[in-house]
Amino acid sequence: MNDKVMIKLVGLHKSFDELEVLKGIDLEVHEGEVISVIGASGSGKSTMLRCINFLEKKNKGDIYIDSKLIKKSSHDINTLRAKVGMVFQTFNLFPHKTVLKNVMIGPSVIKKADKIKAKEKAMELLRNVGLEEKADVYPAMLSGGQQQRVAIARAMAMDPQVLLFDEPTSALDPELVGEVLQVIDELAKSGMTMVIVTHEMGFAREVSDRVVFLHEGKIEEIGTPTEIFENPKSERLQSFIASIW
């Protein structure tokens, strides 16, 4: 982790019709930093994450990626998305393409990458997530944990500067959670900047540099894992922690 700010959110607001989900979020994520976002259902965790890469359109506030203010033009947004990878709760692999093609599709369609190089790189990424031998099968033949690892490789293929994880293990059977967390952990150690929305408190505590606790659309508390989990200051965080341990 260093001083370079990779993501900066300033006064982020988001409403769905009448319902105000984000009520002014300010957050700086530094290069190489791993941030976990925790909080109860409906606290706005996923919405915040989805606003960062404009899958949800913010109502107010500014988003800076790599010190660049992102405007609403589709060019800006597509460029931003190529730099900011996203991993979904439900994997969302492309079922009509093989594992290898899933990983290659980003570079080949968006960056018009050379086929042979894209393939080499995809194979390397699959090796990193331990799925090299599954390159030629279709996603439907994989377990949830394997699918999520492919989804991580697919996101990495775009050489993102930041990876966003939207509850990456929530849709998995308990015995498959570990293999996905291990891959995320390796990415964290390699210096990848990451924002992880998660319910895996043990993992958040272990892997994060800082933990954000969201409550009703605001950052209620932010700090190191030790501060958040062992020394929660706000009453709400205290009761949240008490409710999950």
């Binding site: 890469n53 899958l55 589709s74 597509n78 460029t79 998305r81 190529a82 730099k83 990878g85 996203m86 979904f88 439900t90 969302n92 692999l93 492309f94 599709i105 980003g106 369609v109 968006i110 989804a151 697919r154 996101a155 775009m158």
Partner: peptide, 13 residues
Amino acid sequence: GQDEAARALGMTK
């Protein structure tokens, strides 16, 4: 989710 995943990679509509 298919469209979202494609757009999140940086694809145009």
